[in-house]
């Protein structure tokens, strides 16, 4: 695992069951707004999962852009019935 960002970021205690997920959240969450490129330090990023995809609902405090940033292994297209 790469080095974690420096303080003031905090992590749950290493013994916590999902400390690894929390560490990866800290490492992988978007750092800059996809719309205006401002730092997301003042924004809000909630991570959720869909299958193997990791999805970051992202809100930028600078331009107030809201959207999902998706980390995925492979692109999957669900075909509707036809």
């Amino acid at each position: 695992m790469p080095d974690l960002p420096p303080d003031p970021y905090l992590l749950p205690p290493p013994g916590d069951w999902f400390a690894s997920d929390a560490a990866h959240h800290l490492l992988d969450k978007p750092k800059f707004c996809p719309s205006c490129a401002a730092s997301l330090d003042r924004g809000l990023i909630s991570e959720w999962w869909s299958g193997h995809d990791r999805i970051f609902l992202t809100w930028c405090a600078s331009c107030r852009w809201t959207g999902n940033v998706v980390l995925f292994d492979k692109a999957i297209i669900e075909e509707p019935e036809h």
Binding site: L11, P12, D16, W17, F18, D21, A22, H25, L44, S46, E47, W48, W49, S50, L57, W59, T66
Partner: peptide
């Protein structure tokens, strides 16, 4: 920091936003 939201939890993420 210990939770795992899924697709059905998007309302929760929206509220936090």
């Amino acid at each position: 920091t210990q939770e795992h939201l899924g697709r059905s939890d998007q309302g929760v993420a929206l509220l936090r936003k």
